[in-house]
Design a protein around this nucleic acid. Sequence first.
DNA 1: TATGAATGAGTCTTCATTCAT
DNA 2: CATGAATGAAGACTCATTCAT
Lengths: 204, 204, 204, 204
Amino acid sequence: MQKKKDKIYQSILVVAREAFLESGYKNTSMRAISKKSGIGLSNIYNYFKNKDELFKAVLAPLISHIDCLYEQHTGEEYLSLELFYSKDYQRESIETMVSLVRNFRNELRLLLFHAYGSSLENFRDVYSEKYTVVSIEFLKNIKAKYPEVNTSISPFFMHTLSSWMFTTIGEIVSHDELTEEEISEFMSNYINFGTAGWKKLLGV
Amino acid sequence: MQKKKDKIYQSILVVAREAFLESGYKNTSMRAISKKSGIGLSNIYNYFKNKDELFKAVLAPLISHIDCLYEQHTGEEYLSLELFYSKDYQRESIETMVSLVRNFRNELRLLLFHAYGSSLENFRDVYSEKYTVVSIEFLKNIKAKYPEVNTSISPFFMHTLSSWMFTTIGEIVSHDELTEEEISEFMSNYINFGTAGWKKLLGV
Amino acid sequence: MQKKKDKIYQSILVVAREAFLESGYKNTSMRAISKKSGIGLSNIYNYFKNKDELFKAVLAPLISHIDCLYEQHTGEEYLSLELFYSKDYQRESIETMVSLVRNFRNELRLLLFHAYGSSLENFRDVYSEKYTVVSIEFLKNIKAKYPEVNTSISPFFMHTLSSWMFTTIGEIVSHDELTEEEISEFMSNYINFGTAGWKKLLGV
Amino acid sequence: MQKKKDKIYQSILVVAREAFLESGYKNTSMRAISKKSGIGLSNIYNYFKNKDELFKAVLAPLISHIDCLYEQHTGEEYLSLELFYSKDYQRESIETMVSLVRNFRNELRLLLFHAYGSSLENFRDVYSEKYTVVSIEFLKNIKAKYPEVNTSISPFFMHTLSSWMFTTIGEIVSHDELTEEEISEFMSNYINFGTAGWKKLLGV
DNA sequence: TATGAATGAGTCTTCATTCAT
DNA sequence: CATGAATGAAGACTCATTCAT
């Protein structure tokens, strides 16, 4: 029984994912999901409270993955200006993004471009804000460690920077035709540009 | 008579603007506009072919303004690396944006965040692309003038840069509480960051 | 003044004709006619009581022409069985139809196929009936003149024969690609077939 | 449960049939069907994709019956000139039509006269064409079997002949007052007329 | 748990016609 | 005679959700 329940749950999830990917949140109807999955419309409501919950369930793996990435970046070891000069760090950053895209290309596209109408429609902004808060904290700590550094940076600007990161990801997932090499070149531009920018702002 | 017609046209436009601003394109119904304006629902269709046209009419001033800005930036005089060092140019850029925001704050918000469902829902991407094309042309000309400059920059990256500009504008219009001073600080960060980034990429 | 009035009247008529030909009665809106003609929508109603009257005005020349044809065929001289053997009569019949088509191709198409919604939508049936009545009269007179002839023919059948004539016309006007020669062959088939049929029924 | 579903399905069908018969396709609104049947408007869409599908469902029995008749007439046994002399064949033809009319009088009226706006509005022409194609094939085979026969007959003429058959059917179903005897007389006229016509054209 | 059935408010759009000026 | 403005009813169709079984 438990098993059966799980199977249905998974079926719904899989089908819903396909449907949402194909048409976006708003243009996907519960009926369509029901039909495609062969599971009674009202039965879906036994597994998911409503359309929005179903949508969130589809994107849950991606979002929890992203949450992980956030947490990884708040450790002590990152509190250093040398990061800006570390080729390793840059390579790692690129690799993180590339693998994110590799694993969640479709979900990212869904989340970033086709979530209108759902409670995740503001994801980008919400997470940019999250990241902004972290960054401000980071700056504060940096200031404590390196008092000579200029850290009076507009939080709004930082917000756009975070948002830009999502734009970058969005750009990649929007272009299936990009080869890994092109992505690397792209990311390299991004990192170089950003690093130079940060150095300038911090005055280091 | 002509006058009266114009009056009605304007009424619709004004009310539609308010309504769209309040609820976005998709969540604003023609019925609502009709009710709010006191103008018969079907009569609205005597003035605007359909909801989308009405929406575009509301945003027409903003968009034509933006189109102007584009054209101003394609002149010969901008073909110089010194722009990156010119305080005047930077000040001018800031002023341009600030005044854009001053004059079209609400419209910008509507266009950038609440156009889903309309034919302008991809505005940001479309105009980023427009700007990207212009930028690539610019790079080509720069290369001709200064052959030593590195201009092999990913067009995808450039696209995100253009998009980032809209993010920046969006950020400002999303925060009514920002004082002019804060905006300036913000924009200054943006310009400094961007300038440093560009210099780095171009190798100048 | 009078002239001016006439000019407008004609303008409306001309434009309405084009519009009706293009889209049929039902799918042509008064608004469209107004726009195309540049004549105020409500002003059209000063010249034509309503859409239907306008439509009938467009087709009036054709219909009065058809009415003429009817009247021509009720004369004394046609009361003879020799008609069925007269090559001249057959040639004349063909010529009548061919010239009808030549002069009113578009109107015929409009009347026969695109009058739905108008008071002429039953034209075909109405005129078939008219013709049937005439034919019955004809048969009665023939019977008086040639008592040996069998004239007990179902009026309903005669109705379909009349209707078939319109089908034939409709077929021709539906095929712009038909050459005059093909039309003649076509009509010749029609006449031969019909003549043989009539002879059989009448037993002559 | 299944039963109930079927019941509703049938209810809609029955009511829709009545409504369409009464007012034709175009002048029957889904709302009206909803009201008459007591079934929620939107619920109807759970059973029929749209108005047109509902209409086609109403006429499906008739159309599939007609399709049957077509297929029956393409057999080898019909490839003979003797058909034109066979009283049996003629009697059979009459009986076929009479029973068609008996079983589908109202549907035929609906299909032939009141389908405007639906995807079946050109039924008559479409099926006339179908029948024309079959007839041309028939002529070709006849020519192979009886080379002396004249088979150069305008396909356009044949099209009108097919169409005339529908006119004939239409005539019958338009007149409820016709007794079976009158119908037979009528059909007899039709067959005699047509047979004589065909003989003449074929020169047999 | 699962299902078929139902709901009801909502969407945009069209059109012939009339009224006041 | 002419016009701009207005009307109001009607159209097909959608969808997330709930209810009774």
